[in-house]
Amino acid sequence: MEDFRIQSVLLTGSDRGIGLGLVQEFVKLPHPPQLLFATCRHPESLEGQVLKEMAARCSNGSRLVVLQLDVTDPHSIEAAAEEVEKYLAGRGLNLLINNAGIACETTLASETAQSMAAVYATNTIGPLQVCQAFLPLLKRAARRSNCLGMSCSKAAVINMSSSYGSISAVDEWEWHQDVGYRCSKAALNMLTRCQSLGYGPCGILCVSLHPGGVKTCLGAEKGVLTVDSSARGILEVLSRLSAKDNGTFLDWRGQTVPW
């Protein structure tokens, strides 16, 4: 990733798990982003303080900005977009990573309308609304970029999905049904496809990514992959993405995940 250069990145759900791991890996890059926006619902929480401490230590020409953003609250999303635009000062946003997500351990028998709606609000509707709010900044980045083709260095949307959203694979159903979570991620994958068709002509790359079976507080996937390994793999994949990957579903190794 020596040649991976990206000016601005925004991550949702940055205060724990894979989101925090990605922030840590971004700041360790040989050429870290000039502006890295780490957003979370509660910046004043203990988890948010970790981000603020990281921001205070940032150097090497990179600036880590911690912002409040609740992906289920349109007012919070709009406020964050306005704040980000101020920091960018006329420049566009190169990379948006929709990482915020929740899960409820449910079965077909126990799933409820309330729990499914809550999961959809964060995992599917949230990424839709965040992309809508930040689209003008993504388009601006694409227009201003000197990069040929599509790439994360130019303008891209990465939706953090899951192999649990694969309709053909239906991974690990026998011991973890998680009906609402699976449905929300399958819907997120369709959203990615729609975004690739709608935003692709503007030069914006759109990809769904499965981070692997990572042991995090989310609770949906009980894997053995560490957060660090997943985050490093994801950044390696991001550094290689191009137009041929627009609208695809990949994992942290860059391998195709079946729809």
Rank of each mutant, 00 (worst) to 15 (best):
S115C: 04
V170W: 00
R5V: 14
Q177P: 11
A81S: 10
S115V: 13
C131T: 15
E221L: 02
L197F: 09
L88Q: 02
A103S: 15
A169D: 06
A80N: 05
L218V: 11
N146K: 05
D245W: 03
F249Y: 08
V50I: 15
S166V: 11
V66N: 02
L197W: 13
L22V: 06
Q129M: 06
L188W: 14
C40G: 10
Y164V: 03
S162I: 09
T12L: 06
G212H: 03
A142M: 07
V170P: 03
K244H: 15
L64T: 07
I97W: 13
R57M: 09
K52I: 06
V257M: 13
L209E: 14
G254N: 09
E53Q: 02
L135Q: 00
N99E: 04
M160V: 15
T39I: 02
C194Q: 12
V66G: 00
S45H: 01
L67R: 05
V66Q: 04
P201M: 12
N98T: 13
V257F: 06
T226R: 01
L188G: 12
L209A: 00
G198M: 10
V27W: 10
G165E: 15
R144M: 10
H42A: 02
A38S: 07
L238S: 07
V179R: 00
L29Y: 03
N60P: 03
Q68G: 12
Q195W: 10
D171R: 04
A89N: 12
S229I: 09
L20V: 07
Q195G: 02
E174P: 00
T106V: 03
A231R: 01
L88Y: 15
C183D: 04
A38C: 05
A117Y: 04
V50R: 14
A155Q: 01
L209T: 08
V23S: 07
P33A: 08
I102S: 09
V257D: 10
A156I: 07
T216K: 06
A89L: 12
V207G: 13
L235Q: 01
G165Q: 14
S184W: 12
A118E: 13
K215T: 05
S76K: 01
G180Y: 10
L209M: 12
T107V: 02
E2T: 14
S161C: 14
T256V: 11
S145N: 01
N246E: 10
D70H: 11
Q114N: 01
C147H: 12
R232A: 09
D251Q: 05
S208E: 11
S230F: 11
H75A: 15
I102P: 11
E44S: 08
P33I: 08
G61P: 09
A220V: 08
K139Y: 03
A100E: 00
G212E: 03
G21F: 07
A156L: 00
S168M: 08
V65D: 05
G90H: 02
V66F: 05
G247E: 12
Y164P: 03
L148I: 14
D171Q: 08
S45K: 06
A141S: 04
V119R: 03
Q177C: 11
L148W: 06
L35C: 01
C206W: 12
A56C: 09
G48V: 04
A141G: 00
F249I: 04
H210M: 04
P74G: 13
D228M: 08
G13K: 11
L93T: 02
T12I: 04
T39N: 06
G254S: 07
S59Q: 14
E174A: 07
D251L: 03
Y120M: 14
L93W: 08
I234T: 02
E53H: 11
R140E: 05
S151L: 03
S59T: 14
